[in-house]
Nucleic acid binder design. Structure first.
Lengths: 211, 211
DNA sequence: CGGGGCCTTGATGCTGTTCAAATAGAGTGG
DNA sequence: CCACTCTATTTGAACAGCATCAAGGCCCCG
């Protein structure tokens, strides 16, 4: 059981093109970039910061769709409305491009790159789905920490999200996440300096555990 | 908690275009259309039959990615290899198109339609992910039966897949699926003529249950 | 130094899994 | 058409993993 790490930053060339077509906007931590069920007129490229997308259910349950980092696309929709809401976890800068503009752009490079970004997001969502369907709590947390560490280009990581966000991403409760984190630390796989900062101490073992 | 039904058949116009570009192939039930980790040279459109995509883990766990019906695309990949395998649940007919051909086609209608199909599959995968992350066993089975019924354009449905496939799609065991099916029937929400044929008897109640 | 989140830990219970066995159904050969 | 076999499905009982409920601790920041 090995889930490949799937990067999905937009190609740099695309960022440049989007820069010409789009509008640069900034959002502060805690604001809302777009809300669930809002009109999906814009597509976004994250220039700086970290963003999460969330689906809320009427009875209070939450599921986080994904966390996005610099270079990532988000807000792609087939229909007229956003099916998740997007909120920054840190102050952030985004590039917003009108869908109507993209539809009419005749640049093969741009349209191809957006298709590619869509497929990458599909692949990431599929891996996320596999995790929720078939991994244990421990495996999920191990996978998550590995992915965060990977994305930050180093053996260690700082978590921009809290335990509740991790839980809602992993399909667990905050208590279970906390317990698994403690357990992984006790087993010597990772070392936490504080709740938001850790280092992977036994990469190979953690990888095996993540399944 | 309401998960919208997301159709994702390829637009008819696209089917025609693919017909000119691709090769028609037939597969018998039990054959393999493509295997996990095989080269992903081709993209497929299902013309007739039902197909499932599956991811196998080294320890035997399985997760079904999706079930595909006539008109659906499958086999789209970003990387060079298929990350799921595809197998027909019934004898089926597919149209296979070379990725390299699609890359060079300059028809905006075709490329746009493929992008659209990709986004639809992304949406479906996201809904699947939400289900695995936050729904109870009963809600999952109820959602599944509703979706099958929906897709078959009627209040009833015949299940082309067995209980094990349902379980591997829903992230449950076969026993739990069976129990929930029995429970839904005992509650009068659905009626099974036999294990593979059912009718939804209380649509609104089932919808509420599916959350 | 004190307040308020956020995080951790403990005790208990429920949901879904596991293991085991019975039943129903489909396919086959007589 | 019936008997037989093999597989798929259902059901039961015990168990495990994660959730829930409830404190307690830590850390950031005034």
């Amino acid at each position: 059981m090995s889930l490949a790490y799937v990067p999905y930053a937009a190609p740099v060339a695309l960022g440049d093109a989007m820069d010409r077509l789009g509008v640069r906007m900034t959002f502060a931590k805690g604001e809302e970039i777009f809300g669930q069920d809002e009109d999906a007129d814009l597509i976004y490229v994250l220039v700086e910061g970290v963003v999460r997308t969330t689906r809320f259910f009427s009875d209070g349950r939450r599921q986080i769709g994904d966390f996005y980092y610099s270079g990532d696309f988000f807000g792609l929709e087939t229909g007229p409305a956003h099916r998740f809401c997007a909120e920054p976890l840190t102050d952030c800068v985004v590039l917003a491009v009108k869908r109507s503009i993209l539809r009419n752009v005749d640049d093969r490079q741009i349209s191809g790159a957006i298709w590619e970004a869509t497929r990458r997001e599909l692949e990431r969502t599929q891996e996320h789905m596999l995790m929720l369907g078939r991994k244990s709590a421990c495996e999920r947390v191990a996978s998550f920490l590995m992915e965060v560490a990977h994305r930050q280009e180093g053996a260690g990581g700082s978590l921009p999200m809290g335990r509740q966000d991790m839980a809602d991403y992993l399909g667990l409760t905050i208590e279970t996440v906390s317990r698994m984190v403690s357990q992984l630390q006790a087993s010597g796989f990772v070392a936490f300096d504080n709740a938001r900062t850790f280092r992977v101490t036994r990469w190979d073992a953690l990888e095996r555990l993540a399944a």
